[in-house]
Design a protein around this nucleic acid. Sequence first.
RNA 1: GGCGCGGUGGCAGAGUGGUCAUGCAGCUGACUGCAACUCAGUGUACGCCGGUUCGAUUCCGACCCGCGCCUCCA
Length: 469
Amino acid sequence: MTLHIYNTLTRQKEVFRPIIQGNINMYVCGVTVYDLCHIGHARVLVAFDVIARYLRSQGWNLNYVRNITDIDDKILNRADENAELYSVLTERMIDAMHEDERLLGILPPDMEPRATAYIDEIIAMVGVLIDKNHAYAAENGDVYYRVSSFSDYGKLSKRNPEDLLIDARIDMNLSKEDQRDFALWKSAKTEEVSWNSPWGSGRPGWHIECSAMSTCCLGATFDIHGGGPDLPFPHHENEIAQSEAATGEKYVNYWMHAGAVRVDDEKMSKSLGNFFTIKEVLKKYHPEIIRYFLLSSHYRSPINYSEKSLIEAKTGLERFYMTLRQFPDVQSLPLNDLKNRKYYKCFILAMNDDFNTREALAVMYDMIRQINTLAVTDKAEACLLVGELKTLGDIFGILDSNPEVFMQGGTIVDALDSISSSEIEALISERITAKKNHDFLDADRIREKLLAQGIVLEDSREGTSWRRG
RNA sequence: GGCGCGGUGGCAGAGUGGUCAUGCAGCUGACUGCAACUCAGUGUACGCCGGUUCGAUUCCGACCCGCGCCUCCA
């Protein structure tokens, strides 16, 4: 039952071996806060949230660090466009991000370092790189990393440094010794946000903040470094170059990258403008539906965001809640009580295989069928299984809503626009009276009327319950 | 062009050298006043061509197709 993780560095699944027994240090590249978070951010956030929850559930002592990049060209440009202070912009976006996380049930990381709080450490690291001849201050005031000085350059993204040379940009930067070199420190133009440094006032380049913050928070070498699909090159490649050149140690043991989110089968990107913010999506779908959608395929696979796939996620989750509805009082079981339980072991097997949430979900569906069968034959065993299921739900951050509320809420916006609960209840009691009088024509008329408004009635021995379809 | 990923049944999506993924949708039966829910049963599958093998969807090679990164993007 060992944990296997797919490592981008070696392009294969490897047995996970921690640096210090029982401990895991994990750094995930967070958000550059110049705009609202979109569904792509949600994927990375949820994926690593579940990974963190799972690792902790298995007894690992996890230190989870996720940074915030709050100084960068995009931020300065946006603040300029908005005619506001860059820090006003970043504070607003950080608040918005935290709200998104809270709504999506994403647990806060243990540390959330911000680039602007680590300027001294960044400057120190740049200094070390210059001292070691891995970087140089150009006459324009910028400091560049000397790519040719790092023989392992390209090892993560499997790029040949020679090829990158041929590939050099059309807009040549004459201050660079080599067009592949990238900025560690950017000199300030007039009236720009800046900090003093040995190379004049300026600000950090992209990449160096993550090297500095991860090293400060977790040490020169740590276990896991994660991020989005577009980060292996150049961001993480450059992080490796910076950190390994500065410390002389291996930077990261396991690199993990999430797959891309596509929208209606097209690449989602800022330039295409086809991205959805988390806030937009949350207006239409319950947060757990979004989590379920994200977990319904493996974290490395591309995933397609569409109306259809979200509705499918909704239907899938409803199957769980339909069952949970029969056991409103059952709580999650302590993990220790599950160690020898059949389904739990299957779940662990799936998750230990590079966090195969889809496979794990299949186990949970097996449990549902089992619970529905036992619900009439062996209530006590059914309750045990429900507790077990809810514990697994806790690891995924789902199944924690009140089933009745979940089923009756439907999609959030729809629920607000349509028929109210009290109207529904009134019609249901009207129908019960009709049924008692064997006036099935009238009873069916009421049921049809509600169905036309998306309300599905379910009769059982205990009475009639309803849900928004 | 360089590097990399993938093509699974109506759809979504796991996985495996020779028995089941799973969910949705479909069909049949049970339950129900009729439905819905639920349960039981059931059908359809591994891009194409070769090779290895007793046997390949799974391993190897070629081909076709789709996608990603190489530029800001999680």
